[in-house]
Design a protein around this nucleic acid. Structure first.
Lengths: 344, 344
DNA sequence: AAGGCTTACGAAAACGGTTTCGTGTTAATA
DNA sequence: TATTAACACGAAACCGTTTTCGTAAGCCTT
């Protein structure tokens, strides 16, 4: 086992000082050609690589960024992560991921852990529980320490930081308008319990669209499903469809949409003739569902890339003294992807 | 902006030495009650937390583990990651993820970057290109430096390290036997170009099953699709189905299976009556496909948990001098989950 | 009163680098 | 020949901890 070699080893071996070795490896003007060549050759031979931790301590820069997301087995979040990772890597940063599991406590713990020097900044989407509690002190503490933070998708107005979003409300409105244009009369809103910020925005888009036509909002057309992917019960959905005679459904995520499509099909309804569906999140399910699902593409990868860019810019400008502190909110335009679950 | 406070600050403020502060915070016997209380109160007031980087440097332990996977927008890998992350977190470790993107070079670069002190050990699945090149020097260098490594799923015999696997070959054999039991005569093998280790094993299981019945292997029943999830062309698959009159298909992943099911349905074939399907990876697609897909569950989360456990044990035993170095390979049993794409 | 033992603390080294500044040697200049 | 500048290098501080070891002060013992 050949342990990693350090400057000290090289210095001892070559009978020069540590400083000389350090400078020689950086090709400093101060050091003679001879010495530089000798040192560099030796370093290459023994495959010297500087220790990242020591450099981090010296520079007070880790070149790590912390990403905290509610879930990892999740198409949208992994897509965003991909964007983050690619951009960050290309800029020489590594990414430490923590999963909050939709739990406030885990979010806090992970954040505090990483904030003690492990990362230069955070990119995160709030956990459901955090949004429910409306408690953002852990975020504030971090930003007050001068650690940059970028929120994406699941953001909160209460937190002063950079943000990246999509136009959830507007695209939802467009989607529902599309259904209305196609003559749908009784459009269901399939959403979660209302603490989730994004679900709320999408619901408001749904209301907007109805208001555009001066249609009354029928509370009976709204069904709330638990925000757990597995173990969704078909019975209430079927009961809902039977009772309300809906002819279209706007769902706040693709899982809900596919699930509901299946229930409708089991009831003998034809998609999109009898009932049409629109979902959110252009994931694998939407593409491979039967019929394929019309859905809103959130452009997660781009979102991640932008978040990473914003964060790294902040990290690298931090000129020490407190800046103007003008935070940006970047809104990306989502895209409606039309497939077979709506009439073309 | 209140910057992080250090031992030095506390020491200066309280007019004691840094060592005293350090010891007081650790409740050392050496320090008087009075001083301890004073220091601890002050530390709490200013929310002192030790700097992780400094501790890492001192201990030569980062409490970080590096995970390198070929892809992140991928159900199986994220599932494994979830297992890793949960176990690691619970043990006080953080996880740095790098995505090799199926590229050898990226794998090497990421590994070297992290190996310079950023992590205490690695958990990884080999990139496709690495398996194709059969070049594992980057892994050997890391292990020779005494950094523990655990490979999962995509492993290589050439690398001496701990491994976690599923019984790919055996479960594939069982799956194909199930199809044979149900009277299928012409069973297709839908696989990738052959460099992928796991595809190979699954193919061998397919061969095994046929040999069990003394059936000849018909090369015409094997179709190889490109290992890219998107943009698969339907034409060759349809041509294949038409020409070979297959009555079942064993697919090495769920994407292939769902894709092929769709092609078959478009051709007017009934599933499972005319043709039945079995896939690998019990992901979302399998559950929500129409019909639902019979598939092999790889128990990714458990796999990740075990990998993390093995790694952390290695990391924490490292008694300095080179141990016996007996590596383990843990083989998990996959499970065949029967759904509607095969006859029950 | 001298020696020994606690008690309570500080100095300093160490982890592995970077960087500033000081200095001995040589060569160029007056 | 004396002065000075350039060159090449080393000492030491620093980043924030931990930990070993040394020691001053106070008390007890005989």
């Amino acid at each position: 086992m050949k342990r990693k070699i350090t400057l000290k080893h090289i210095a001892r071996e070559l009978e020069v000082s540590i400083s000389t070795v350090s400078k020689a490896l950086k090709n400093s003007e101060e050091i003679s050609r001879d010495t530089k060549e000798k040192v560099q050759a030796f370093a290459k031979l023994y495959n010297y690589k500087p220790n990242n931790v020591a450099i981090s301590l010296k520079n007070k820069r880790t070149k790590n960024i912390g990403v905290i997301i509610p879930e990892i087995v999740h198409h949208f979040f992994t897509t965003v992560f991909r964007g983050i990772e690619q951009y960050a890597n290309q800029k020489g940063y590594n990414v430490i991921v923590c999963v909050s599991d939709e739990s406030f406590d885990k979010e806090v713990i992970n954040m505090e852990l990483l904030a003690n020097g492990s990362v230069d900044g955070f990119i995160m989407a709030l956990s459901a529980e955090t949004q429910l509690k409306n408690d953002y002190n852990h975020l504030k503490e971090v930003t007050e320490q001068g650690i940059p933070l970028v929120l994406f998708d699941r953001v909160a107005d209460e937190v002063a930081c950079d943000k990246v979003l999509i136009n959830d409300r507007e695209i939802a409105r467009q989607a529902v308008n599309k259904l209305l244009d196609q003559g749908r009369k009784r459009i269901a809103l399939v959403t979660t319990d209302n603490y989730l910020n994004v679900s709320n925005k999408r619901a408001r888009g749904y209301f907007d669209a109805l208001e555009d036509r001066n249609q009354e909002i029928d509370e009976n057309l709204i069904i709330k499903l638990p925000y757990t992917y597995l173990g969704m019960d078909k019975v209430p959905i079927q009961a809902f469809f039977e009772k309300e005679k809906v002819d279209a459904a706007f769902c706040v995520n693709e899982m809900f949409a596919v699930h509901c499509m299946r229930v409708a099909q089991d009831m003998g309804l034809k998609i999109p003739e009898d009932i049409s569906f629109i979902g959110f999140t252009d994931g694998i399910l939407s593409k491979y569902a039967n019929p394929t699902l019309t859905t809103v593409a959130q452009h997660g990868e781009q979102m991640g890339e932008i978040a990473a860019k914003m964060l790294i810019e902040r990290v690298e400008q931090e000129n020490g003294d407190d800046e103007e502190e003008i935070f940006q909110t970047k809104v990306l335009s989502a895209t409606l992807i039309e497939r077979d679950s709506t009439i073309n």
